[in-house]
Simulated scan of single mutants.
Amino acid sequence: LFESLPDPVVENRFVDGEPLVERVNPAFEDVFGYDERELAGECINDFIVPEDRSEEAGRLDASTLDVEPGDATVVSSEIVRQTSQGTRHFLFR
């Protein structure tokens, strides 16, 4: 399912508060222009968050970390990210 989703998806884990890439789906590679091998183990924010949006990204990361395992809460927000074709609006979930 992960591989066939039409929307860009990144699977990450948090280390010291930073979202480190575990894997990305093909749609992510197409939209953002980064290969999974290039991103694995790196902080996703360093690649796709525009400079003027870094505080917003930090707040979203903190909100995500505040959700307890097994909690039904979904962190969701409209965001702007840097793609291979310029900035674009996305729904973060």
Rank of each mutant, 00 (worst) to 15 (best):
S76C: 00
S63W: 11
V75C: 00
D52T: 10
P69K: 08
R81P: 04
E78F: 02
A62C: 13
D66V: 10
V74P: 01
G70L: 06
D61F: 11
R53V: 07
E56H: 07
G58E: 13
E51Y: 11
S76A: 03
L60G: 09
A57G: 12
G70Y: 04
A72S: 00
S76P: 00
V67I: 14
E51F: 12
E78M: 05
E78T: 02
D52E: 11
P69R: 09
R53M: 13
D52I: 06
S63P: 08
V74Q: 03
V67T: 10
L60W: 12
G70P: 01
E51P: 13
G70C: 07
D52F: 04
T73A: 06
I79R: 03
G58M: 08
S77Q: 04
E51M: 12
D61M: 13
V67C: 08
E78D: 07
D66R: 12
D61H: 08
A72D: 07
D52N: 13
P69I: 11
I79F: 06
D71I: 05
R53A: 11
E56C: 06
G58H: 03
G58V: 08
I79G: 00
D66L: 13
S77I: 04
E56A: 07
E51H: 13
R59Q: 12
I79Y: 03
E51W: 09
G58Y: 05
V75N: 05
A72T: 02
A72C: 03
S63I: 07
T73Q: 08
L60N: 10
D66T: 12
P69C: 08
S63G: 14
E68K: 14
R81Q: 06
G70K: 07
T73R: 08
E68L: 15
P69Y: 09
E56I: 00
T64K: 01
T73I: 05
S54Q: 14
A62K: 09
L65I: 15
G70E: 08
L65W: 10
E51R: 14
R81N: 07
A57M: 14
A57S: 15
E55P: 01
E56Q: 02
R81M: 00
R53K: 13
T73F: 03
A72R: 06
R59I: 10
D61I: 07
R59P: 05
A72N: 01
G70A: 01
R53S: 09
T73D: 10
E68N: 12
V74Y: 01
A57L: 14
R81D: 02
L65E: 15
I79H: 03
P69V: 10
I79Q: 01
D52K: 07
D71S: 13
G58A: 14
V75D: 06
E68S: 14
S76I: 03
D52L: 07
V67H: 09
L60D: 11
P69W: 11
E78L: 02
V80I: 01
S63Y: 14
S63E: 15
V74G: 02
S54C: 12
S77N: 05
